[in-house]
Amino acid sequence: MSRRQQPGAGWGSAAQPEQHYLIEPRYLAGGGDLRHVAEYLRASGWTDTTRRSQAAFVFVSPDRMLRVAYQPPGGWQIQGAGTGPGSPWQAALSPQTPVEIVAGLTDTLTKARSAHAPNVWAPLAEHGWNTERGHHFTATAPDGNAMVQYVQGEPGQQHWWIGARNEHGSVWNATATPTTPLHLLQGLTTALADPEPVMRPRGHVPPSHRVRTTSVSVLPQQLSAWQQARTAAARAATWARNQATATRSRPARPAAPNARAR
């Protein structure tokens, strides 16, 4: 939602309302503002390890096991070290992947895993995506412009593939190793299938007849307030999680002696 797709481009620099556009489907909306991802990670206690000379950013989780990086022109690189043999994983998303969809995965990295078994395909089916079980398991958006696929190749070649295209060709794509935790991929497909439009400023609307746009006038302080609400939610969730961890790790207090005991 910024004028530039770089961290540090100041929101709220103008006092007058600015024209923005609500775009749907979101998977054809273009990249968006990188801080949608970066500031949530920062608010969740992740460490910014970006070198000052780099245009990209790099964030590392508090336990140093997870890494999220954006490096133009390559795009997003998200990695997990894993805790056992064969468990390291990684996902790569091209630069024009909408940040709201990237955040579906990266926001999930900061949260505790649900006790329920993850299902990558459930959010897609819920929103009417067409599934096909052939050589590869595939889900296609109702408009045919986005796809999720688990590619069954030779041993060592299996992988996840997600992508979108418009009348001009491929818009973005993402790949993930088969060891990528399924709850993270479910976070991504939940964001991918979400029918809510996303906002882009004037000049950042993709030149495609396959997107639907609604013009809105937005004050800079409104943009700032929306971002602050998102980061405040991340801080609150991190504080609650840290408090719960501290409570579990605190040793039990011994029972007070009974004054009447003989």
Rank of each mutant, 00 (worst) to 15 (best):
P142T: 14
P142Y: 13
P142W: 13
G144Q: 04
N145V: 08
M147K: 13
M147N: 07
V148G: 08
Y150L: 14
Y150W: 10
V151A: 03
V151W: 02
Q152H: 13
Q152D: 09
Q152W: 05
Q152I: 13
Q152M: 10
G153R: 13
G153L: 13
G153Q: 13
E154M: 04
E154F: 02
P155G: 11
P155Q: 11
Q157S: 12
Q158R: 06
Q158W: 01
Q158A: 05
Q158T: 03
H159M: 06
H159G: 02
W160D: 06
W160A: 06
W160K: 07
W161S: 15
W161V: 15
W161A: 15
I162L: 14
G163C: 02
A164L: 06
R165D: 08
N166F: 04
E167I: 12
H168P: 02
W172G: 05
W172F: 10
N173Y: 11
N173G: 12
N173K: 08
A174N: 04
T175V: 14
T175D: 12
A176I: 10
A176W: 04
A176H: 07
T177E: 04
P178D: 03
P178R: 01
P178H: 02
T179A: 14
P181L: 05
L182Y: 05
L182I: 03
H183Y: 09
L184P: 07
L185H: 00
L185V: 03
G187A: 13
G187P: 15
G187W: 09
G187R: 12
L188V: 09
L188T: 08
L188A: 05
T189K: 12
T189R: 11
T189I: 12
T189W: 11
T190C: 10
T190Y: 13
T190K: 15
A191R: 05
L192W: 14
L192H: 12
A193H: 15
A193T: 15
D194L: 08
D194M: 08
P195H: 10
P195C: 10
P195E: 09
P195T: 08
E196G: 12
E196R: 15
E196H: 15
E196S: 15
E196T: 15
P197L: 00
V198H: 00
M199A: 05
M199L: 08
M199T: 03
M199K: 01
R200Y: 06
R200L: 06
P201F: 05
R202T: 12
G203C: 03
G203T: 05
H204Q: 14
H204C: 06
V205P: 14
P206H: 07
P207T: 07
P207C: 04
P207V: 05
S208Y: 00
S208V: 01
H209S: 12
H209K: 14
R210W: 09
R210Y: 10
V211N: 02
V211W: 01
V211E: 01
R212Q: 12
R212M: 09
R212F: 06
T213D: 00
T214A: 07
T214Q: 13
T214C: 03
T214P: 05
T214G: 05
S215P: 13
S217Q: 14
S217P: 10
V218R: 06
L219C: 08
L219S: 11
L219I: 09
P220V: 11
Q221W: 09
Q221G: 02
